[in-house]
C-alpha cells in the first residue's frame, strides 16, 4: 500500500494505492500520524486505487475513524469499487466511514 496526501488549506485527500491488508499496519499508522500532524479539518480517503482490503484493513479504517472523532476532523471515504466496495457494503462500514 502506498498513499499520497494532497491538501488545499485544511481539506486533505489521501489517495491510496495497492492492497490494504494486515501487513500494511505500519504504513497505515504512519499515514495517520501524517494526517494528525497536518491538523486538517476534513480528510477524504480516496480508495479508487485500492483493489483489495482484508479484515485487518477494515480495522485500520475504524482506527482512522476513531482518530478523526478524537482529533476533531471529518472523515469521508470515496472511490471504492469492486471487492473494496463489496466489503464496505457487506460489513456496512460504508455508513460508519461516511462513504460518499
Amino acid at each position: 500500500m502506498e498513499y499520497k496526501i494532497d491538501h488545499h488549506g485544511a481539506q486533505a485527500t489521501i489517495r491510496f494505492q495497492g492492497d490494504i491488508t494486515f501487513s500494511e499496519n505500519y504504513t497505515f499508522r504512519r499515514m495517520l500520524s501524517d494526517v494528525s500532524a497536518g491538523k486538517y479539518s476534513a480528510c477524504t480517503f480516496d480508495l479508487s486505487g485500492v483493489s483489495m482490503i482484508d479484515s485487518a484493513g477494515l480495522g485500520m479504517f475504524l482506527i482512522a475513524k476513531e482518530n478523526a472523532d478524537n482529533e476533531g476532523w471529518a472523515l469521508q471515504v470515496t472511490g471504492a469499487t469492486g471487492h473494496v466496495a463489496d466489503m464496505l457494503n457487506l460489513t456496512q462500514l460504508s455508513k460508519i466511514l461516511n462513504q460518499a
Partner: peptide, 28 residues
C-alpha cells in the same frame, strides 16, 4: 454480521445467497 454470504443450493440445482450484510461484532 458482515460474514461472507452463505450459499443455498436448491434442489433444482440453482444457487442463492443468504443476506449476512451487517456491522461486524465489536464495532458499534
Amino acid at each position: 454480521a458482515g460474514a461472507p454470504r452463505p450459499v443455498i443450493m436448491k434442489e433444482g440445482g440453482g444457487l442463492s445467497l443468504l443476506h449476512t450484510e451487517g456491522v461486524p461484532l465489536g464495532i458499534s
